[in-house]
Design a protein around this nucleic acid. Structure first.
Length: 645
RNA sequence: GCCAGCGUAGCUCAGGGGUAGAGCAACGGUUUCGUAAACCGUAGGCCAAGGGUUCAAAUCCCUUCGCUGGCUCCA
């Protein structure tokens, strides 16, 4: 029997018999690894451990700690879900059942049977019962004809439809227990590592994601090798629920919605407005430093502005409809973007190459008619404010400008406590270059320069082909919040289209007309979405400089109200935001109310404090800090009260 | 926009054909208090809106609006 060479992740090479399986290799390394191994990567392809390896390969064995291991684990769990469903609901038809970032789902057609919470519990129990049987996931090559015959007999029309698109010779089945599914794998060796199961929710999903097709029932679930891990995950979900910005926004009186105003149109309450304006102030200051010129443009624009920009053609009918005036035929649109207005500002006068880059910044409120089902708290709304800016520059300035914007974005993230972030470089689809506007050479250059700019700033990036906008490549920032969830925030986009459509030009050193490149950028993205993410990230405990109410002054009884008012006045003179709780309540009650509304500082004043001209400082969540003079208090926390630099 | 579930007091929620309920908040009193909820009382509702079934509807049915979870879309 011939031998093959297996390269391990550490670079060492093992010679094994041709046809050795991943499991055997794992066992040859250690029993522990063999016990925990879930799948194997062979030359970059994730496979079953039980598949023989028949050529030289570099491999990597995946356990629960690897994405590839979880992927196989959850994929197998989806099959287990299907097996349980088939046992409990005979005649159920199956769509697809893939693993996802957190768990897996299976789309099923229950023939119109209702499926509720109790059913989920029933199915969970069946899954656990089946998992205990320790059935192996068995892979089997089948011919297309046999596969179609199998599902025809079984009566699974969706699987037959999937089979139509597959080439004969590439089709595999996986079987565990009494359940056989069309599947390319990979799977874990047996069902027994699946020790903890939770079916999370049920939702409708169109067959193959097309709204013209039948709606199937999608069952979401998650599984773990240990009960404890499931419990931790459920705790995390609970914590996420507690931090939900819609809940905290209501409790902390930051924003509200009104049916009369309209869905998806947030109302910023006084406290939310403080928060928002502090963020704006912070950004304004950073932008002035970075050489931006603030501008202001109206909330509406003539229809022809958007005809020129191309937005009317692309989004006109799916958007807020034109506003009419008493003048016949006159139409205005609510602005869905700020860039057309900024292009017109650029065109106010002729520009020289020496003027560039020109950076126009505006907190511009835009209106987009999102589909009703898509609205969600502050993260998906129909009216929102972008911390928008457009940089008009020469092609040779793109990279430098990109670097500057990256610096600004990172400054924002770190100032707000988002220290884990990644970026996605969105490039053209090389197979489909005609989909994009702009010269090939410019694209090549911009794509290269974006990547270089990101690299120079040490950004962790993932390049994704085919994700660019049709008008230019972009760099999107993703932050990881305190619960480990990823959010897409800021974006930087190169645009060749608008300068062309608006016929923007500048006079070069050669005395010829040239077309500037435009860079759209928004570090926050939208204030609304950013505030939502921030609320959930810090659970409503904002950094002091952002906190709507920084200090609560709490007199112990009404006898000390006068001194308390004095204290508050002094604070206000130093631009510290605070309020006086002079209600006829006991101090314990006042403290509790301040604690639950997450006020960072409580200054308690009673007989002692009045006598010594001091305040007793209590920190939110940390308790009594002892007494200090007001001056000392202000001095001690001055830096935290102020905007970060 | 599509599918499913949900809409009861300012908030959190009970009640599921026969007089509309609780806690917190609000308001009025009493109390003047030292680090997470004082006590007593009062008021508060077209049970999302509209239509139907019924002797009788918050409750059952239909429509509309809104919210939630997904799907689709996202300049």
């Amino acid at each position: 029997m011939s031998e093959i060479k297996i390269t391990l992740p550490d670079g060492s090479v093992k010679a094994v018999a041709n046809g050795t399986t991943g499991y055997e290799i794992a066992r040859s390394i250690s029993e522990g690894l063999a016990r925990n191994a879930l799948s194997i990567e062979v030359n970059g392809e994730i496979r079953d451990l039980s598949r023989p390896i028949s050529a030289d390969a570099s491999i990597r064995i995946f356990t629960w700690n690897d994405k590839g291991g979880k992927y196989a684990f959850w994929h197998s769990s989806a099959h287990l879900l299907a097996e349980a469903l088939e046992a409990l609901y005979p005649g159920v038809k199956f769509g697809i059942g893939p693993p996802i970032e957190n768990g897996f789902y299976y789309d099923v057609d229950l023939n119109g049977q209702p499926f509720g919470e109790e059913d989920l519990v029933k199915v969970e129990q069946k899954m656990l019962e089946l998992a205990k049987t320790n059935s192996a996931f068995v892979r089997k090559d089948v011919s297309k004809a046999d596969a179609i015959r199998f599902f025809t007999e079984k009566g699974d029309p969706y699987k037959i439809e999937l089979l139509q698109d597959l080439a004969d010779g590439t089709i595999t089945f996986y079987q565990q227990g009494n359940f056989t599914d069309l599947c390319r794998g990979p799977h874990i060796p047996t069902t027994s590592p699946i020790k903890a199961v939770k079916l999370l929710n049920v939702a409708g999903a169109y067959w193959r994601g097309n709204e013209k097709n039948k709606m199937l029932t999608r069952i979401y679930g998650i599984t773990f090798p240990k009960q404890k891990e499931l419990e931790e995950y459920l705790l995390l979900l609970e914590e996420a629920k507690k931090r939900d910005h819609r809940k905290l926004g209501k409790e902390l009186e930051l924003f509200a919605f009104s049916e009369k105003v309209g869905m998806g149109l947030p109302l910023w309450l006084p406290k939310g407005t403080v928060l928002r304006e502090r963020l704006e102030q912070f950004m304004r200051r950073a932008q002035v430093k970075a050489g931006y010129d603030p501008v202001v443009t109206p909330h509406i624009g003539g229809k022809s502005l958007y005809v020129t920009s191309g937005h009317y053609e692309k989004y006109g009918k799916d958007s807020f409809q034109p506003i009419h005036t008493p003048d016949e035929g006159e139409e205005f649109l609510l602005k869905p973007m700020n860039c057309p207005h900024h292009c017109e500002i650029y065109k106010v006068k002729p520009r020289s190459y020496k003027d560039l880059p020109i950076r126009l910044a505006e907190f511009g409120t835009v209106y987009r008619y999102e589909q009703s089902g898509e609205l969600h708290g502050l993260t998906r709304v129909r009216g929102f404010t972008q911390d928008d800016a457009h940089i008009f520059c020469r092609p040779d300035q793109v990279k430098e400008e990109f670097i500057k914007v990256i610096d600004l974005v990172l400054h924002v993230f770190t100032s707000l406590g988002f220290d884990q972030y990644t970026a996605q470089v969105s490039l053209r689809d090389p197979e489909n270059k005609q989909k994009y506007i702009g010269e090939d050479a410019l694209w090549d250059r911009a794509e290269r320069e974006i990547q270089e700019a990101a690299d120079e700033r040490g950004l962790k990036t993932v390049a994704v082909k085919g994700e660019a906008a049709f008008y230019g490549p972009k760099l999107d920032f993703m932050v990881r919040d305190a619960l480990g969830r990823s959010w897409q925030l800021g974006t930087i986009q190169v645009d060749y289209q608008l300068p062309q459509r608006f016929e923007l030009e500048y006079i070069g050193s050669d005395n010829q007309k040239h077309r500037p490149v435009m860079i759209h950028r928004a570090p926050f993205g939208s204030l609304e979405r950013f505030v939502a993410v921030l609320i959930e990230h810090c659970a409503g405990n904002f950094p002091l400089w952002l906190s709507p109410e920084q200090v609560a002054v709490l007199p112990i009884s009404e006898k000390f109200n006068t001194y308390a008012q004095e204290v508050l006045n002094v604070l206000k003179e130093s631009d510290i935001r605070g309020f006086l709780d002079d209600r006829d309540e006991k101090i314990g009650r006042k403290i509790r109310d301040a604690e639950v509304t997450k006020v960072p500082f409580m200054l308690i004043v009673g007989e002692k404090e009045v006598a010594e001209r001091k305040v007793a400082v209590r920190l939110h969540g940390k308790g009594d800090q002892g007494s200090v003079s007001l001056d000392e208090f202000a001095r001690q926390y001055a830096r935290e009260f102020a905007l970060p630099v």
